[in-house]
Design a protein around this nucleic acid. Structure first.
Length: 704
DNA sequence: CTGAAGGCTAC
DNA sequence: TCTCGTAGCCTTCAG
């Protein structure tokens, strides 16, 4: 019997063009155009890698099929929807599967094995899991029939001359690194596209070494974990599962048996964790990693001229090791720069060009090729440059990247709010007014009573009220009676775009509640005139009824606020006060750190000035001879004269200009020294609360 | 009560 | 080049 394979290839942007009557010879279009903006690394796509590899195996017994993006989660999904899904239809055709059929042997299928060939990253693990979910749901017996495999590819390659060695576990590479080898060039394989053609051919030559079977060892546990991971209603179980996760289980796929069970518990779970990390912001800076990477790049590159969004995206990828697609990153940049009503209260980036409007909820933004951005004027009043030096910068494969979190002057998480969807958890928090927040912090710092903060949106003309009964805020648009048959809508509730609202009005026409409406909206002004019959108007005339009929309400729930705390744990926050409290604690700690840091810098300056003065004095008085002396002799004498080294060296004294050795210079230095001392005294006397108040005051003035 | 839709970072 | 599909959680809304 022929042993043949179907590789399920995970790739994006690939069109599977030919209808394959014969799975053994597939024609494909290969998009090989993706490359990083600096042009150093080029990416081929995974299917290309696979097809290249087939040069070693031949194509008679191998077929490859490219998947696009994430497959459907078939658990709890209507069979009708599953059967309509293009990807699933294709997989079924390719493998010769039938719904409802029970297989006793893989010989009933068109291929003897199915192999997952995905990027060796976390989204790749997610895709493998979703595929396993499909087989487990409809053809569970295939899990027991040695049918499901994955193709493992290396994570790191090291090269020296003609020598090359691959590591399939990061752990192995780390161990090798500790043996202190020199002169090796290291490549991280971030995706299948990193694999070179000749390498793909080698891997496929030894294909059996690379094919790892999923074993079906613990039926009950396997069934349970797949259900826990994919069943829609089990988010709370997933919470528990993720909270119990202990990182660091390193799997050696070559020596250890991979079971479906261990795959979900050790590998898939890493995706779930990462899904939360990228989707849920930090309580400290209010940012998600992609946004933080953008800010980091803006700070680091210190752009003075506006930069094209597409170019900024490339810079972020490079400077902050962003390993995902550019579209996603560009979306993050655009989102950070938007400032229409309902988006940011304080956009950290400037929207130079069309970044979208409330007409389409921001979806009308122009392409990143056409738009520009730059830091906003206020950004550096919130993220103070001096604090850059006291942050905890992360490391990506030995490359310094953005900090675990920034520490802004105000809790930015409240200013712009946040929405995010992770695994087990999601989060949603509305916007608050920057000036309200500053006032709150100032009163807090002065030990005075604070007022409850309520959500607020810049330039929103409607009302936001608290609905005690339902414990939620209600945002209300504005509708006014012009005459007995005409109404005017001049504001929409938060979160409803003009576009969406027209659909609502169309619905009202269908229901014969209104006759017609005219749009006079601009991108910044809502202006809709509604014509209605006198009778109908009378019926709905009272204010509440009008708001409800015209659906001019939206709701803000405060019951799903999850944020990463300073210790990188997801925490549920019950109130705004709690967020400010936790933010304030860490902010004050970091004012102490900032103060200590600046004082140490000033002390260093003072020491340098003092020693320069002493040094000049020593020379002018003839206590220190430089002429015809060896450096070692001079330095010994300097120590005798109790001159101090800085950074373990006297260079800062011995490299001084000859012109400095004068009384005039001495007087000048004395002046600077005295100023430095005053500066030190003043900072020493300033409390950390005063430092914070000063920053808040400056920010407040600038906002006004 | 159930199913669908929307928000958002990723594929 | 542009549009569209998928995951994941929670809330709202229509039927």
């Amino acid at each position: 019997m022929i042993e043949n394979f179907l590789e399920l290839v995970d790739i994006e942007d690939i069109e599977f063009t030919d209808k394959y009557e014969n799975m053994i010879d597939i024609s494909v279009d290969i998009d090989q155009s993706f490359s990083l903006s600096n042009g150093i690394i080029s990416h081929n796509s995974a299917l290309g890698t696979c097809i290249t590899g087939f040069a070693s195996t031949g194509r008679d017994f191998y077929g490859a099929f490219p998947l696009k993006g994430k497959p459907l989660n078939v658990r709890d999904t209507a069979l009708s929807k599953i059967k309509e899904n293009e990807e699933i239809k294709n997989i079924i055709t390719a493998l010769g599967l039938e719904f409802g059929k029970k297989y006793t042997s893989t010989k009933e299928l068109r291929y003897g094995k199915v192999v997952f060939f995905s990027d060796a990253d976390l989204d790749g693990a997610h895709i493998k899991g979703l595929l396993i979910n499909i087989f487990e749901t409809f053809w569970k017996e295939l899990l027991e029939l040695d049918f499901i495999y994955e193709f493992v590819t290396p994570i790191v390659k090291i090269e020296k001359g003609k020598d090359a060695k691959f590591f399939y576990k990061l752990d192995d590479y780390e161990k090798w690194k500790q043996t202190n080898q020199k002169g090796w060039f290291v490549t991280y394989y971030k995706g299948l596209g990193t694999i070179e053609a000749h390498e793909a051919k080698d891997f496929f030559k030894n294909i059996n070494k690379h094919l790892i079977r999923f074993h079906y060892d613990k039926p009950d546990e396997t069934k349970d974990i797949i259900d826990l991971v994919f069943r829609e209603k089990r988010a709370d179980d997933r919470k528990k599962w993720l909270l119990n996760y202990k990182p660091g289980t390193i799997i050696d796929k070559f020596t250890q048996k991979t079971t479906f069970d261990s795959f979900f518990h050790d590998e898939f779970i890493e995706f779930s964790m990462a899904d939360n990390i990228r989707s849920i912001p930090s309580v400290v800076d209010g940012l998600k990693p992609s946004q933080r990477k953008v800010l980091y790049t803006m700070f680091k590159n210190k752009y003075t001229n506006k930069i094209k969004v597409a170019n900024l995206s490339g810079a972020v990828m490079e400077k902050s090791s962003y390993h995902h697609g550019p579209q996603s990153l560009e979306g993050a940049i655009i989102g950070m720069a938007q400032n229409f009503v309902g988006s940011n209260n304080l956009n950290l980036l400037q929207p130079l060009g069309n970044f979208g409007s409330r007409l389409k909820g921001g979806k009308d933004a122009a392409s990143s090729r056409y738009t520009f951005t730059l830091l906003s004027d206020l950004t550096r009043n919130i993220f103070i440059p001096t604090d850059d030096d006291i942050l905890n910068y992360l490391d990506d494969d030995g490359f310094s990247i953005e900090p675990d979190y920034y520490i802004p002057v105000i809790p930015m998480i409240l200013v712009n709010g946040s929405n995010g969807i992770g695994t087990g958890w999601s989060t949603s928090l509305p916007n608050f007014d920057t000036k309200d927040i500053i006032k709150y912090l100032v009163l807090n710092l002065k030990g005075q009573a604070t007022e409850q903060l309520h959500p607020k949106y810049n330039h929103f003309k409607g009302k936001i009220t608290y609905d005690e009964k339902n414990d939620r805020y209600v945002t209300t648009g504005i509708i006014k009676k012009i005459n007995m048959s005409t109404l005017n809508i001049s504001e929409l509730p938060i979160g409803i775009s003009n576009d969406k609202y027209y659909e609502i009005l169309d619905g009202l026409i269908d229901k014969k509640i209104i006759k017609d409406y005219t749009k006079n909206d601009t991108d910044v002004k809502v202006d809709i005139t509604v014509s209605i019959t006198r009778e109908m108007l009378k019926e709905i005339e009272d204010k509440d009824s009008m708001i409800q009929t015209f659906k001019l309400e939206s709701f803000i729930s405060m019951s799903n606020i999850h944020l990463f705390n300073r210790n990188s744990q997801i925490k549920k926050y019950g109130s705004i006060d709690e967020i400010i409290q936790e933010f304030s604690e860490i902010r004050l700690e970091y004012y102490q750190k900032r103060k200590d840091y600046i004082l140490s810098q000033l002390e260093r300056d003072r020491k340098i000035l003092l020693n320069r003065m002493k040094f000049i004095n020593n020379i002018l008085k003839g206590e220190l001879e430089l002429k015809n002396k060896k450096r070692t002799e001079i330095e010994e004498k300097m120590i005798e004269l109790s001159l101090e080294k800085v950074d373990d060296s006297f260079s800062y004294l011995l490299n001084m200009s000859l012109l400095s050795l004068s009384n005039e210079k001495l007087l000048e230095l004395k002046e600077t020294y005295n100023q430095k001392k005053i500066e030190i005294d003043e900072l020493t006397k300033t409390t950390i609360k005063q430092l914070w108040l000063k920053d808040l005051n400056e920010l407040y003035k600038k906002i006004k």
